[in-house]
């Protein structure tokens, strides 16, 4: 039996990178997916159609803007209307605006927190409310970053927002445990995604040197941990942060 057979997951950030890899892996392992994205593209919709046919599961695209609370609410209404019990919420969508501490614009700080913290908490409030209805519990996963655990020069907004979501997740885990809802966070390291496409090769090589595995991670390697956390295989894990960083600093 596939590890997510019969489950339904809401995944944000499905257009590309880790979100896309998670959507694909969840579907291939039997899960129905509400595939959330900011942008609607022909390639994305074609990919969903192909994936549905390949896997025999439901994949419903949901489009919304995490900068806009009303847009988030509308998306949840759409999900609610489908009347499919939700088993897992995977929060992947995020944003990054790099600047040194003294150069951080307050507007950039606010918009980073809006997407990486406030919107994720609001969206989770609504989706958890749907999870509570069926009484079977569920799994909520947030995506932090090793920057959120360690801090990093030039990433004040991003790193501090990723630290905030760790504390939010732990708090949710403490509150939702009695409802059989587990809440965990992953903290990816250097992953081969769009986020690094404009980063100079030399910088990436320097980052890789600091890992035990001496390579960037692939989105699928993050997706497999997300799948584990969404499945019953992690049924006694909650309130944890799992680093997926190729052994950075060991």
């Amino acid at each position: 039996m596939k590890s997510l057979e019969g489950k339904t997951a809401v995944i944000t950030g499905c257009l590309q990178g880790i979100g896309r890899a998670a959507m694909d892996m969840f579907a291939r392992n039997g899960a129905n997916v509400f595939a959330c994205s900011l942008k609607r593209t022909e390639e994305f919709e074609n990919h969903i159609e192909e994936l549905k046919n390949e896997c025999g599961v439901e994949i419903i695209p949901v489009y919304f803007d995490m900068m806009d609370d009303e847009s988030i609410k509308s998306a949840v209404k759409e999900i609610q209307k489908a009347k499919i019990p939700i088993d897992a919420l995977v929060n992947i969508a995020g944003t990054d605006k790099d600047a040194l501490f003294q150069m951080v614009k307050m507007d950039d700080l606010r918009s980073t927190y809006q997407v990486n913290v406030f919107a994720q908490i609001l969206f989770s409030q609504y989706i958890v409310k749907l999870m509570l209805r069926h009484g079977k519990g569920g799994s909520v996963i947030f995506t932090s970053s090793i920057s959120g655990l360690e801090g990093r020069a030039g990433q004040l907004a991003y790193a501090s927002s990723k630290a905030a979501i760790v504390a939010a997740a732990k708090t949710m885990a403490a509150e939702l445990g009695t409802s059989k809802i587990r809440v965990n966070t992953i903290a990816p390291g250097f992953i081969d995604t769009e986020m690094y496409k404009d980063v100079p090769k030399e910088t990436i090589e320097n980052k890789i040197k600091r890992t035990a595995l001496k390579r960037m991670g692939q989105p699928e390697e993050i997706a497999s941990v997300l799948m584990f956390l969404a499945s019953e295989r992690s049924s006694h894990i909650t309130g944890q942060v799992i680093r997926i960083d190729g052994g950075k600093g060991v």
């Binding site: 609410k73 949840v76 209404k77 609610q80 609504y126 409310k129 509570l132 209805r133």
Partner: peptide
């Protein structure tokens, strides 16, 4: 929260 879910289900609404 169970009450909120019951009210939402009863009237097919989403409470803020």
């Amino acid at each position: 929260m169970q009450l909120i879910a019951a009210i939402e289900d009863a009237f097919d609404i989403m409470i803020d």
